[in-house]
C-alpha cells in the first residue's frame, strides 16, 4: 500500500556551511585547538595568603594538594577540576601584564561545585568556620549557596533539582561513536 508520507523523502544535497565554521572545525579535527580527552579543566584563582587559601580548599572543600613549588603558586585537584592559586604581582601566573595592570582576587565569577546534600554541606561548613556570602538560594534547576575563600574569591556549592541537566556519560558504539 503506498504510503503518502513517502512524499516527504529528502535526498541528501550537499550544502557548504559558513567558511569560518568550516575552518574552525578543521582546526579542532587536526588537534590545533581543544584538550585531548581526559585532560582536566583548569581554573586560576588569585590569592593573597597562599597558605590560608590552600588550607581552605584542602580542609573545607576536600581538594587535594598536587604541587606547592613556591610561596606564590599552588596546584590543587578536585576530581576533574584543576585549581591553580597564584599570588598577584609575582611570577608563576600572577605577573603584571604588559600594560601594567595587576590581577586581583574577587568578583562575581566563580567555580561551582556539585554536592549531594546542600543542607548538610552548609551546616558542616558553618561549624568549621566558613564565611558565606549568601544563604541557600533556590535557583533554576538547582539550589545553591555562595561562600568566600580567604582571598575573597567566591565558590558556589549547588545541589541538582528538578530539571537539572548534565551531559549524559558518552557511551560510544561503532555506529554512534
Amino acid at each position: 500500500m503506498p504510503d503518502s508520507l513517502d512524499a516527504l523523502r529528502l535526498p541528501v544535497v550537499p550544502v557548504e556551511p559558513r567558511p569560518e565554521f568550516a575552518a574552525a572545525l578543521l582546526r579542532r579535527i587536526t588537534g590545533a585547538a581543544g584538550p585531548a580527552p581526559g585532560q582536566p579543566a583548569t581554573v586560576r584563582y588569585f590569592v593573597t595568603d597562599l597558605d590560608a587559601t590552600v588550607a581552605f580548599y584542602r580542609d573545607l572543600l576536600g581538594f587535594a594538594v598536587e604541587l606547592r613549588p613556591s610561596p606564590v603558586f599552588a596546584m590543587l585537584y578536585r576530581g576533574d577540576l584543576r585549581l591553580l592559586l597564584s599570588v598577584p604581582g609575582r611570577a608563576g601566573g600572577g605577573e603584571a601584564l604588559a600594560d601594567g595592570s595587576v590581577p586581583a582576587p574577587g568578583g562575581w565569577n566563580r567555580i561551582a561545585l556539585r554536592v549531594p546534600d546542600l543542607d548538610t554541606a552548609v551546616a558542616d561548613l558553618r561549624r568549621r568556620g566558613a564565611r558565606f556570602r549568601t544563604g541557600i538560594i533556590t535557583g533554576v534547576a538547582i539550589r545553591q549557596v555562595l561562600l568566600h575563600d580567604p582571598a575573597g574569591n567566591l565558590v558556589e556549592l549547588f545541589e541538582p533539582g528538578a530539571g537539572y541537566h548534565e551531559r549524559a556519560p558518552q557511551t560510544a558504539t561503532d555506529h554512534n561513536p
Binding site: L10, V12, P14, E16, P17, L25
Partner: peptide
C-alpha cells in the same frame, strides 16, 4: 563536510543546531 551539513541542515532547520551537530559528528569520527 558539505554532505554531512547538507544532511543535517534541512532536517533540523537551524544553522546553529546544524553546525553543532556537524561538529559533534566529525569529532566523534576522530
Amino acid at each position: 563536510l558539505p554532505q554531512v551539513y547538507g544532511y543535517l541542515l534541512p532536517r533540523c532547520g537551524s544553522t546553529v543546531v546544524a553546525e553543532d551537530l556537524t561538529a559533534e559528528t566529525f569529532m566523534a569520527a576522530v
